[in-house]
Simulated scan of single mutants.
Amino acid sequence: MTVAVAADVLANAGNASLDTYDSGPSAIAVERWLVTALTRLAGLGERADGVLTPGGSLSNLMGLLLARDAAAHRRGIDARAHGVAALPGPVVFCSELAHFSTHRACAALGLGEAAVHPLPVDDRRRMRPDALLAALDALGPDRTPVAVVATAGTTDFGTVDPLPQIAEIAAERGIWMHADAAYGFGALFSDRLADRLAGLELADSITLDLHKTGWQPAAASVLLVSDTTAFTALDREVAYLNPADDSEAG
């Protein structure tokens, strides 16, 4: 914690903006190093990527935004051109103990909180894969499964959903799997506890919050993705943020 506080003092003294490379080259280099280290810790492959966000709720929001646009793409819909209104009957699955930010994210993304389908948990307070399968089988053709949100470390109990089984179901059905590991990701720093997050590496996106089990004094959440092309949905090119001389310099 002492190191974190000292680093926070230096960061605030520099007050570097990361809007452009020119304004914060050293900070961007640190961020890229950190993201690479965290993707490796999570067991993600060479195509993995990530970005820092101010809090776990924002990471969950971004993960579901990417899931929403991926679902639209599977339906042959251009989400940028037509918006989410063109996505029929969106559904987001999570356990009944999932963080409230899942509901809030769906509201903010235009899916509506009613899109969230909470699933029952077992006697260990973990999402039941059989309930997920049953809910998917019950969906009609007018519904679009957008994502399955697996929780790795619930806020109240610290329980971890059965990640390998959920990932298998999501892969078989072609659904985005987002893992909310805001609390649980810290177990990967421990040789003794890391195996409790087995299957995390199978997620399409992962939320982790270094403010919680990373001992950082300020909100310091991260969204990791298994494939950097997932961020294509967020691409914007504008001259004042993407100057030609920076691009030419690599």
Rank of each mutant, 00 (worst) to 15 (best):
T159E: 08
A6D: 15
A72K: 00
L136W: 11
A37W: 12
R75V: 07
E248V: 05
L52Y: 09
E168Q: 01
Q165H: 11
Y21S: 09
R236H: 10
P141V: 10
F231L: 09
V91Y: 02
E96W: 11
E46Y: 13
D161Y: 06
A187Q: 10
L97M: 12
N242W: 13
D8A: 15
A150P: 03
L224E: 10
L64M: 03
H99E: 09
T53Y: 09
T20Q: 05
K212C: 12
A171W: 07
A135N: 03
L136N: 08
A115Y: 03
R126G: 00
T228V: 13
R68I: 00
A152M: 08
A131W: 02
R192Y: 07
H178A: 08
Q165K: 13
D246G: 02
G184R: 06
A147N: 03
S23F: 11
A138Y: 02
L241Y: 06
F157D: 09
A249V: 06
A147S: 04
G14Q: 12
A219E: 13
P118R: 04
W215K: 15
L41H: 01
A182G: 15
I169Y: 02
R47I: 10
S205G: 15
A138N: 06
A13S: 11
A182P: 04
L66S: 04
E31T: 08
E237K: 09
V225E: 07
H103I: 12
P243S: 02
M177T: 08
A70C: 00
G63C: 08
V148M: 07
L10E: 15
D204P: 05
T159I: 04
L87V: 01
A29W: 14
A4C: 07
E248W: 01
D209C: 12
R143G: 02
S17I: 15
V84T: 08
A170K: 05
L97S: 15
D49S: 13
P217K: 14
G50M: 05
V121D: 03
R74H: 05
A115K: 01
I28W: 07
H211W: 02
D180K: 08
A16R: 12
W176T: 10
V51S: 14
A194N: 03
D49W: 13
P164M: 02
S23K: 14
P145D: 01
I206E: 04
E237V: 09
T36W: 08
L44H: 00
A29M: 14
A138D: 08
N12P: 02
P217N: 15
A239R: 13
G43R: 06
L109M: 02
E46R: 14
A108M: 07
D137Q: 13
A29F: 14
G83I: 04
V116K: 04
A203D: 06
A203P: 12
T144F: 01
D161S: 05
R143C: 09
S101D: 15
A70R: 05
G112S: 03
F100D: 13
D227K: 06
T102N: 10
R40P: 00
W215R: 14
D122E: 00
L132G: 04
I166C: 12
A138E: 05
R125E: 08
A167Y: 03
L64K: 04
G24C: 00
A187I: 02
R125Y: 05
A29D: 15
A27R: 13
W33L: 14
V9Q: 09
G45P: 09
T102Y: 01
F100N: 07
